[in-house]
């Protein structure tokens, strides 16, 4: 019978923490999807050898401290403005790998203008959009993406669409824009989903390296604290309630539209 200590040898290592992920313990709540996405992003930056050309733009929201966890150069944007910062960075530094990391309050509410125009210009950036249907950082208020009848701290009797409008499908919107090249909706609640999401992120990164236009990757996520569930319950609730309204899968996969030739 083999002892555990005989298995724990460097040559037997099959999964461990990426070197691009720092040793700082993440401030996220237990079971938060942010941690998983940070981790696979760090793994990809390491595997694709792009740490030296990566510049991240952090949002305002729970991921405001993303710069503490992934070991690349970062800028911290004002609320919703990450795509504008990324535009400024990439226009003047076209050979860098520039990405924004934004939540649904940041991207779909206060930053709706900036993201639409950045995608419409086809800025050569990767947008990672974490959609958990709620404002996590400020205490679980309604987001534009909050589902109909979903209870939040500002919709204590459930989201009333007569009063608050309908949950906003940002990813469907940006897929319509000629500037986007790869638009997909993913999740990260099971090993298979995380692996699939990582492949999508890899494709998005590769598109940026190949200068194909904006790649936009939504990750339907949980906020178990905001939803007031355990992490395992939150994953189940997401599958049952979020996925029917925010169905997973690729919406667009092409090069951004080429301009019409001038005569």
């Amino acid at each position: 019978m083999m002892e555990i200590k005989d298995i724990l040898k460097p040559e037997n290592l099959v999964y461990g923490k990426s070197k691009v992920l720092t040793d700082t313990i993440m401030h996220y709540c237990p079971g938060c999807t942010h941690g998983v996405i940070h981790k696979i992003l760090a793994e990809l930056i390491e595997e694709m050898g792009i740490q030296e050309k990566a510049v991240g733009v952090a949002p305002v929201g729970c991921a405001v401290f993303a710069y503490n966890y992934i070991d690349v150069d970062w800028q911290e944007a004002a609320h919703g403005r990450a795509p504008a910062l990324a535009t400024g960075i990439v226009r003047l530094n076209p050979d860098k790998f520039v990405f924004t990391y934004q939540g649904d309050g940041d991207l779909a509410s206060i930053g709706a203008g900036e993201i639409i125009h950045a995608c419409n210009r086809g800025e050569n950036i990767l947008v990672i959009f974490i959609n958990n249907g709620i404002y996590g950082m400020t205490g679980g208020q309604m987001a534009p993406t909050t589902l109909e009848n979903m209870v939040t701290s500002t919709t204590p009797f459930g989201r009333d669409v007569e009063m608050n409008g309908y949950p906003l499908k940002m990813t469907d919107l940006v897929a319509q824009l000629p500037g986007t090249s790869y638009v997909t909706r993913q999740s990260a609640q099971t090993p298979a989903a995380v692996r699939k999401c990582k492949r999508a992120l890899k494709k998005g990164i590769q598109n940026v390296l190949d200068k194909k236009g904006t790649s936009f990757i939504e990750v339907v996520s949980t906020c178990n604290s905001g939803w007031k569930m355990t992490p395992v319950q939150a994953n189940k609730w997401m599958e049952d309630h979020m996925f029917p309204y925010y169905p997973l899968g690729d919406m667009k996969d092409c090069e951004k539209e080429k301009p019409v030739e001038k005569n």
Binding site: V55, R81, A84, L92, E114
Partner: peptide, 21 residues
Amino acid sequence: VVLQAESEVAAINMVYGAAGT
């Protein structure tokens, strides 16, 4: 580089991002 932004809000934040480099 010269770029017409979608608003003054976006313009100053493009300046922010570019100045950071």
